[in-house]
Every structure is written in C-alpha cells, then in structure tokens.
Amino acid sequence: MEDTWGQFKSFEGAKFEALSADFTREVSSLIGGQDLTACFQCAKCSAGCPVSDKVNIQVHELMRMLLFGLEEVLETDMVWLCTTCYTCQERCPQGISITDIIFGLKNMAFKRGIRPKGYVVARQGLFDTGRLYEPTDWEREDLELDDVPEFDINDIQKMFKKTGLLELEEKEDA
C-alpha cells in the first residue's frame, strides 16, 4: 500500500512567487477549461467530493490555484486522487466542467513525469495488447461463454503511433 499520493501536501510554508499567465491560458484551452474565471469559491465542489477529507489541497483550492496560474497545482495530491466521479461538475452552481479540467491536468502532469507508476504500466499494456486485462478462459468455458471477439493489435498500434502515446513526455523530463 502506498501513502496518500502526491509530493505537494500542503500550502503551509509554501511561497508562490511566479504566477504564470501562460499556465492559466493553457488550462483555459482544455476541454471545459474556458469557464475558469467563473469560480466564486463557494466550495460546493469540495463539499461533495469523496476525497476532500483525504487530500491536503481540496478541489475548490485547486480551482483557485488554476486561476492564479500556480503550476504547483500539478504536484498536489488532488490531481491523481480525483476519482473522476463527476460529483463536483454535476453540482457546481457556476456550471464549470471541473472534472473535465482535472482530466486535462492529469494529462499535463503525466507529460511532466508527475504520475503514479500504475499509469505508466497501464499505458504500455494498452499499447502492447489493446486491453487493460486479459480474459479468464476457464471461467468462460465453465459458463459456456464464447471467446471474446478478436481485433488486430496492429490497428491499435497504428493509432497510438500517430497520437504518440509512448512518447508523451516533455523533452526536459525525458
């Protein structure tokens, strides 16, 4: 078992000097990101979030960090401990696509090498086999289920080569 995920555990003692307008712009261009400035910090998102009591930076705080252009947000445990349950997005009175924005942050963090190991393993597995898990044949035989339909892994790899799935890492981290 691992400890709570993420290097950036608390605001305590943290100093934020450089506010990056570029970063805020980058986040705003994500799917769902355009509404960033509408957040009025009501914290309703955090009130229903299943991990609010398990992270040090809650989701409403994350939203404010985005607006302030604090790139440290990518190191908060909220990014990878977000279960993607969409409760916050469903309830936000300002209609902000919070979860979709967090997906974008996960993508950005992944590229910079800030990510749990399991995701790196899953990426390789998806590239190699096109699946996350393999069928359990004896169970299927017992229940008289047919084989799972087949596909050509070359098709999948052709796509992933085009999207550059295996080389997402930004140069300076590579």
Partner: peptide
C-alpha cells in the same frame, strides 16, 4: 458480437492522453 472491440480506454487512458 462486437467484432474488433478493443479496450474502451476508460478513465485510465483519458487521464494519460485525451487524443489517444
């Protein structure tokens, strides 16, 4: 039967790279 079906990608791949 869904011939040719691969993994759906699920939130795992969406978390890694949206385009993929």
């Amino acid at each position: 039967d869904f011939d040719g079906a691969s993994c759906c990608g699920t939130v795992v791949l969406k978390s890694i790279d949206e385009t993929s």
